[in-house]
């Protein structure tokens, strides 16, 4: 087959349909639809139902509470720092892995997956052990009056840790299917490395990159476990949105936790819509 004429998506290759088997096909579809309805759609709908069960006024009141406002700001801050850093790192790592051969490449790939395989709570504890009082870094931090753990820097670090692989994992397959030829072509035409990156590499991976960033951001804003461990749980200061939801839930407020949860649910819906859009876009442009 003529390889150049095969359409391919930089995100996912198009599946080859199996020969028609009506019964199996409908059974599988039914199971998938039912399962997603019960386990995905229903809880999502319930969040909105509960949030509005006590009326709009209470909904707005819950969202306009100062502590909720500060949780929103903190969540944006944490994501605002960790996502760009992880995007930059992911770009560098995926480039290195997809386009070069070097000693320790397998090790880097394995390390990259570590945050996926480590429980977020354990990840949080690692930071407590590293930066907490009596930890490895404690004397140095104390000498410089730096506070990491139970404060915002610790929450940013924990978030960076758990969202570490998203961009790189998304970009590696994209870059591998791209190969190096476009970049080499740019080099033979006299372009330097920087110009090649901005004009050739980045445009050809942009949808994959955006997709990775969207996933990374969703996880960064929604992260609970690791952030729970390193947060000082100070209302209005070190509570992110998910922590705020948990706190409100334990305050016997019937609607407030769900009202705040709708923000996270909307984030999830926006992520899914963006993801679909990016996949469509990248398919169209290939």
């Amino acid at each position: 087959m003529n390889p150049a004429s095969v359409p391919h998506s930089p995100l996912r290759a198009a599946p080859v349909p199996l020969p028609e088997q009506p019964l199996a096909k409908w059974l599988l579809i039914a199971v998938a639809v039912l399962f997603s309805a019960v386990f995905l759609l229903l809880p999502l709908v319930n969040v909105f139902y509960q949030a509005f069960s006590s009326g709009w006024a209470l909904y707005w009141k819950a969202l306009s509470e100062p502590d909720t406002g500060s949780a929103i700001r903190l969540t944006l801050l944490v994501a605002g720092i960790s996502v760009p850093l992880n995007a930059a790192f992911g770009l560098a790592a995926s480039w290195a892995i997809a386009k070069f051969d070097f000693r320790g490449k397998t090790l880097l790939l394995t390390l990259l997956d570590l945050p996926f395989s480590i429980s977020p709570v354990v990840a949080g504890l690692l930071f407590v052990l590293l930066f907490g009082a009596g930890g490895l870094m404690a004397p140095w931090l104390e000498a410089h009056h730096l506070k990491i753990i139970f404060a915002i820097p610790g929450m940013v670090l924990a978030t960076i840790f758990v969202t570490f692989p998203y961009v790189a994992r998304e970009l590696i397959p994209v870059m591998q299917t791209q190969g190096r030829e476009q970049e080499e072509a740019a080099l033979t035409l006299g372009a330097g490395g920087w110009r090649t990156f901005w004009h050739v590499t980045l445009p050809s991976i942009k949808w994959g990159l955006f997709y990775g960033i969207v996933l990374c951001n969703a996880r960064a804003m929604g992260e609970f476990g690791a952030v729970f461990v390193v947060s000082g749980h100070i209302a209005g200061q070190t509570d992110t949105l998910p922590l705020r939801v948990e706190k409100l839930y334990y305050e016997f407020d019937p609607a407030a936790p769900f009202a705040v949860a709708t923000l996270l649910a909307l984030l999830a819906v926006a992520t899914v819509v963006l993801k679909a859009f990016l996949e469509w876009k990248s398919r169209r442009e290939t």
Binding site: E184, A185, A186, T188, P203
Partner: peptide
Amino acid sequence: VPVQKRNIGFIFQNYALFKN
């Protein structure tokens, strides 16, 4: 001498056109 300075024209097997 780096590739940029050799003043060569290279044509790749799969064209390697800049698709954007």
